[in-house]
Design a protein around this nucleic acid. Structure first.
Lengths: 225, 225
DNA sequence: CTAGGCTATCGACATTTGCCGATAGACCAC
DNA sequence: GTGGTCTATCGGCAAATGTCGATAGCCTAG
């Protein structure tokens, strides 16, 4: 995730006819001050200001790299709340709940919490840093590829928990088609899980589990973790 | 497509500890000579060589932009065959056929050729530059997000024609979840097209059509275009 | 062997970048 | 009013870039 946003920012800056302005745009998106960034880069604010106001028409790769790294590092220090979310603080239609754990949590613990059991043969031995609960049909309609960052929030090391799932094909197909992959998928109170869903979970090496709980109970159970 | 690859290359170059070497790697991936690139940039080959051998530790944004633009422009002149395909010449399991038209073709002509009719309300008034025929279930299992470039080949301005389709949900969900979008989707001899498929076509503004022909007949009909 | 294509190295030098510090302006809270 | 925060502008200057041309080496085909 971080590597991707860094690459995107750097790419945009270089390709911009006004690299300095693009740098400023991104800093403001992240809501970081020139002073804080200057401190992070171990320089002075007027350096940042000069670049951002296009005093230098063609900043070098070295500077751009340090600037972008500084932005992303500072954002991480602030919990990655604003920047990586693209500045949209509220949840999209289809996202029922979302949380980051304070510490990495074994998937097994999460599964136990939800009385969830595996339906594919993918090994459950991995850690989860958070979860997102989604209403599957609504999410598919309202969240397209460019906004998956919202589903994943700060980390893809999360469980995606889909409710209102009949056969589970559409969520697994969507995950298959998108470059970012979650750490696990859990279907809340599904119908009969289709064999394609299971095969996709195995192809992608993403554990697939089901729980009899519905979304509100899932959120409640995970609140206590 | 082009904008995305440009951004990716530029981003990689800037973030690389060895920008010059990364430039070289990409030029070689595209199979473009220093001489040809130098000509495109209206400079001399020793300039390219100096940068690529890291004589300049921190090339400026201006040069990187021109270099990347030059690569992509030259690749386009060569039909975009090698670079954008990632150098995989053979078709993946699931791709039954694929072609670029010599000239842009109205979608209506393609539809007429296949006796296809629209099932969603999206306007058909657009041009197609080519098509890919896919076996839907096999494609979904064998082609993940990172290899969609293969499905699209040179241009996303194409019709994706899916065979072995029951309700048409999975193909539309996959398209929904991926950043690149085709110009049209045609289901060859589907079962009953599900309302979700139709809604996704409308949300994405991608025309959705069906034809009674099976894949071999489709390929045959389109061969004559 | 020669010719052509491709690439590498390096001297040269005009131009630009990278970075700092001094100064100034705007805004807000006390 | 003062103090603090944030940002902008600009002079100064060492260091690096951007670009060219000359030269050289390697490989292949005829």
């Amino acid at each position: 995730m971080e590597a991707e946003i860094r690459e995107k920012i750097a790419g945009e800056v270089v390709l911009s006819p006004h690299p300095g302005r693009t740098l400023r745009k991104w800093r403001e998106d992240f809501r970081i001050s020139q002073r804080d960034l200057a401190k992070q880069l171990e320089t002075v604010p007027s350096v940042i200001s000069d670049y951002e106001s296009e005093r230098r028409a063609s900043p070098g790769a070295g500077f751009i790299r340090r600037y972008v790294d500084g932005l992303v590092a500072l954002d991480a220090n602030h919990g990655g709340r604003m920047g990586l979310r693209g500045g949209v603080p509220s949840h999209s239609d289809g996202i029922l709940g979302m949380r980051e754990f304070a510490v990495a949590m074994p998937l097994k613990s999460v599964a136990d919490r939800l009385d969830a059991r595996a339906v594919s043969r993918v090994d459950l031995h991995r850690d989860i840093h958070g979860f997102t609960v989604l209403d599957a049909p609504r999410a598919i309609l309202s969240i397209d590829a460019s906004r998956f960052a919202e589903v994943y929030g700060w980390t893809t090391q999360r469980a995606l928990i889909f409710s209102n799932v009949r056969y589970g094909r559409s969520p697994m197909v969507a995950i298959r088609a998108h470059p970012l992959k979650p750490a696990a998928v859990i279907f809340a109170s599904p119908g009969r899980v289709d064999s394609l869903a299971i095969r996709l979970s195995e192809v992608e090496n993403i554990p697939l589990l089901t729980t009899a709980l519905h979304a509100p109970a899932v959120l409640e159970r995970l609140e206590e973790l």
